[in-house]
Every structure is written in structure tokens, then in C-alpha cells.
Write a protein that binds this DNA or RNA. Structure first.
Length: 233
DNA sequence: GCGACAG
DNA sequence: ATCTTGTCGC
């Protein structure tokens, strides 16, 4: 019997692609967010040769000091059998079911969500951050460590510098230098937020590492790596 | 047809 | 994503 938390994610690649094309039209690319007091970071990891999917969500308080370390308000983990293989362009169908279950365990309702993956910087403009944003009806930002599609110039070295990521004649995101001498981040709006505001939040949440704190914390929790020692001031 | 391809 | 050893730099 279907329940409200059980969705039909068992789609063929063709059906999944058709669904993405339909849902992409519902993505809001302009700011529609209220006061931000909590920011959630989401990431997925795997255990046992990929048999188990592990979704992690970490909620931090805003305002906070990324260099000193944000206050972690809540963090949850959800494990379940992996549903489908990784297929470029269809990542959300592999990761979102587990992510939604993890969000269901949250007591706090974040006002902004950062997702490990692309937002609209996707062939059909519906990366995992956008897809999750629609399901949660929350503002989401896609924070990816590498490129899925699009072209861009070289990014200037200084931290905070960025260059547009373009695809088929439109700007779909930004390639952001978060650390000097380190591969840049691919930032794109997920849902209910503009690219400019997305970049603003990612930069504001930058600590000493390549990833913004919410995503870095979720990344660690998802992969079961313990806390990293923070160098003394 | 060929290469590229988030995690 | 995950696995894994050595290496570079502050």
C-alpha cells in the first residue's frame, strides 16, 4: 500500500527524463526566501560496496562564524538499501528518496538548503538540488565539486572570484574559486533563489576548506569520517 | 557516430 | 561515490 512518504521512484531512464522535463518548468529562479535562521547541508554516502545508501542532513544556526565553526542545531542520518545505479543526469532518482527520509526525521525546518550536486546546471535544468527543492518546497542551492554540463572560462585565482557557467546560450550557474590553488566549485540555483543570492550564501558560509560549512559537515556525516582537527588560531 | 558525464 | 599509499606543505 502506498503511503504519503513512499513515492514511485522506480522509473525507467526514459520515464525519468520525461519527468525531469516536466518538473523543470516548476523551478523558481528568483528569490523567494524568508529570514534565514537555519541552513541545512545535505549529502549522500554509501556503505557496503554501495549496497546501502546513507543520507545525511546537518542543520546549522545562522548567523554564525564559519571560521570558528557554526553551531550545529541538529543532524540526522538515514540508511536504506540502494535503489538504482548512478547514471549521469539522473542522480536525483538515486539520492532523493533517502534524502527525503532523512529530512522527515528533522525537528527543525531550515529556511535554506545546500545540496551536494547541481541545481539547474543540468542538461534538462533539474539537478538533484532543484529536484529536492521542489519536493521540500524550500529554497535550495546546488554546490557541486565538478561539472556536469556547460562551458566556462578559467576562474581567477583569488578566493571569491567566479565566472559564469553557460549551456545552450544561457547562464546556468557559476564556477567559484573558494580556495586559492584548489579546483573551483560549481554553484547553481536549485529552487526559489537567484544565482546571485546563491553565490552570496555560499561565500558567507565558507570556512577554511573548499566546501561551504553546511555541505562540508553533511559530507563528513554521510561518509562517516569523524570531525577534523581544527588548527588553533 | 563520438566523446562527456553531478555522485 | 569508494578504496588506498605515499607525498607535499604549513
Amino acid at each position: 500500500m502506498p503511503t504519503e512518504t513512499l513515492h514511485d521512484w522506480n522509473l525507467s531512464p526514459e520515464e525519468a527524463i520525461a519527468l525531469q522535463k516536466r518538473m523543470a518548468g516548476r523551478i523558481e529562479r528568483e528569490d523567494r526566501l524568508g529570514p534565514v535562521r537555519h541552513i541545512a547541508g545535505v549529502d549522500i554516502g554509501f556503505e557496503q560496496e554501495g549496497e546501502i545508501t546513507r543520507a545525511a542532513v546537518v542543520v546549522v544556526a545562522w548567523p554564525g562564524d564559519p571560521l570558528a565553526g557554526f553551531e550545529v542545531v541538529e543532524q540526522v542520518v538515514h540508511r536504506e538499501p540502494t535503489r538504482m545505479p548512478y547514471i549521469p543526469g539522473l542522480l536525483s532518482f538515486r539520492e532523493i528518496p533517502a534524502a527525503l527520509e532523512a529530512f522527515g526525521k528533522l525537528v527543525t525546518r531550515p529556511e535554506l538548503v545546500m545540496v551536494d550536486g547541481q541545481g539547474i546546471a543540468h542538461p534538462r535544468r533539474l539537478g538533484v538540488a532543484s529536484h529536492l527543492g521542489l519536493w521540500l518546497d524550500l529554497p535550495t542551492i546546488g554546490v557541486a565539486k565538478s561539472r556536469l554540463c556547460g562551458v566556462h572560462d578559467e576562474v581567477p585565482e583569488p578566493r571569491g572570484e567566479w565566472t559564469p557557467l553557460r549551456h545552450r546560450g544561457e547562464t546556468i550557474g557559476a564556477v567559484l574559486r573558494t580556495r586559492v590553488g584548489v579546483k573551483p566549485l560549481f554553484v547553481s540555483l536549485g529552487h526559489r533563489i537567484s544565482l546571485e543570492t546563491s553565490l552570496d550564501w555560499v561565500v558567507k558560509c565558507l570556512g577554511r576548506t573548499k566546501l561551504p560549512e553546511p555541505t562540508r559537515l553533511a559530507d563528513r556525516l554521510a561518509s562517516r569520517r569523524g570531525p577534523m582537527p581544527r588548527p588553533a588560531d
